[in-house]
Structure formats: C-alpha cells, structure tokens
C-alpha cells in the first residue's frame, strides 16, 4: 500500500484534517442561513476534499482510507471533528484551523519534500478560507450584541482544541510548534480587530484534547464517521 518515499503518517494526518473538516462543512448544505453562504461553505468543503483526495492517493486507495478505517485509525486533530454548532461556532473553527493550515502549507511549500507540490497549490485555497473566516469573525464580533456574544462564546469553547494543532507530526518536514507564535499573532490580531477578547483558558485539557493525532477522538466523531461511511460500507465499491 505505501511507498517508501511518502511520509505516511504526515500525509494521513493532513488528509484526515481536510476530509473531516470537509465533511463537517458539507453538513451545512441545506441548513445555511442564506444561499450565498451555503455556496461559500460548500466551496471551502470541496477545496478541502480535493486536498484530502490528493494526499490519500499518495498513500494508498482513497476509498479504502476514507471509508474503511475505524475511528481510532484517523489522525485528524480534534478541532476539525467538533460539531458545527451555530454559525459562530463554525466560523471560530474555520478561523482557528485555516490560520493554522495556511501557515503549515506555507512552510511545507517552501520545504523540500513529497508534500511541497500539494502545499503550493493548496496555500492559495487556504488563503481564501482564512479570508472568509476573518471577514465573518469581524462582522459577528463587531456586529449586534447577540452575534458578539455568540462569537465570543464560540472562540472560548473551541480554544481548548487549539493546543493540539502544534504537536509534532511524524514525517512532517515542518515542526508545527514553530508556527505557534505566528498563529497567535494572526488569530489574536483578528480577535482584537473584531473587538473581542482573546480566550485565556487552557488550550488543551487532559480529557479532551491533545490526542487526535494519536487516534483518540471526541464523542461526536464516531457519529460523524458512521454517517460518512455507512453508504460505502453497505454497498462496497458502488459508483454512480
């Protein structure tokens, strides 16, 4: 299944991040507050799905990897598997993750390695995802009292999943820990500009975060996976 040159764990970690977040964003289809926003979220989901497919195909069979692995075999960070919540929660998740992914792909594109080609292409996509999240954070934070409260709550609630973003990934030519200061600068700048407060709680807890990369996931992930995989498991190899 694997070739000798591709860093399997690194490729799977990035692919699982992209696939899981793509699926979560896809859940907004049919439920978004307005049609225009539904299309925007679906476009971001499709970008992420494209990244995931590219990475899976480097490592093995796409369908096998996406649809036949058990929960414990997924290496995505716990942040991306969190439920959509209200629109502010989705935007907070997008802000935290797209800022991280943008920095990571930027470094990967500059570094030599098997992942550089994907990163160079994806960095443009992620720049747009980041812009989308920033624009909405500013509008919700500096909007009505209701939107402001919800945006601040969402940032606070997801903060505990941000520490895991900076844990090392085996085979990745970039050390995520080195991205942390820049990530804090970018995210902190947006939060301040949105007249919101930087969350000050712990960015990880022994119970909830810090282990997605080791295959330990939070409760909502199992249900998401069941929904994502059941069709393929019921009809293996089915096609349109």
């Amino acid at each position: 299944m694997t070739t000798t040159t591709v860093p399997t764990t690194a490729a799977l970690s990035l692919a699982d991040d992209a696939l899981v977040l793509s699926h979560r964003l896809g859940e907004w289809i049919g439920h978004a507050p307005v049609l225009e926003e539904e299309v925007a979220l679906a476009n971001i989901a499709l970008d992420l799905l494209g990244q995931a497919r590219f990475l899976y195909s480097m490592v093995g069979d796409e369908d096998e990897l996406a649809y036949r692995r058990e929960e414990r075999a997924f290496l995505n960070v716990q942040l991306v598997e969190q439920t959509n919540g209200d629109f502010a929660a989705t935007i907070a998740r997008q802000l935290y993750f797209s800022c991280y992914q943008g920095l990571l792909y930027g470094e990967l594109a500059a570094a030599d390695g098997e992942l550089a080609a994907l990163a160079a292409r994806a960095v443009k996509e992620v720049a747009y995802h980041q812009d989308h999240a920033v624009q909405w954070t500013l509008r919700l934070g500096d909007g009505t009292p209701e939107s402001r409260t919800r945006m601040q709550d969402a940032l606070n609630a997801l903060w505990r999943y941000t520490g895991e973003l900076f844990t090392p990934v085996e085979g990745l030519p970039v050390d995520p820990a080195a991205l942390r200061d820049r990530w804090l600068d970018v995210v902190g700048g947006v939060i301040r500009q949105a007249t919101l407060t930087m969350p000050d709680g712990p960015d990880h807890t022994p119970w909830a975060a810090g282990a997605g990369r080791q295959g330990i996931h939070t409760e909502p992930f199992g249900r998401m996976l069941a929904e994502m995989q059941h069709l393929h498991r019921a009809h293996p190899g089915a096609s349109w």
């Binding site: 307005v34 225009e36 476009n43 624009q135």
Partner: peptide, 20 residues
C-alpha cells in the same frame, strides 16, 4: 445578482457564485 450584508462580502459571494 446575489444578497450580501455589505460590498466586501458581496464581492466574496460573487467570487463563489460566478467565477469559481
């Protein structure tokens, strides 16, 4: 045509709807 809260978001929605 499309709906958007302001010009900046209208431009982004237009990108998503018409120039993908």
């Amino acid at each position: 045509s499309l709906h958007a809260p302001d010009a900046t978001m209208a431009l982004r929605n237009a990108r998503d709807l018409f120039t993908r």
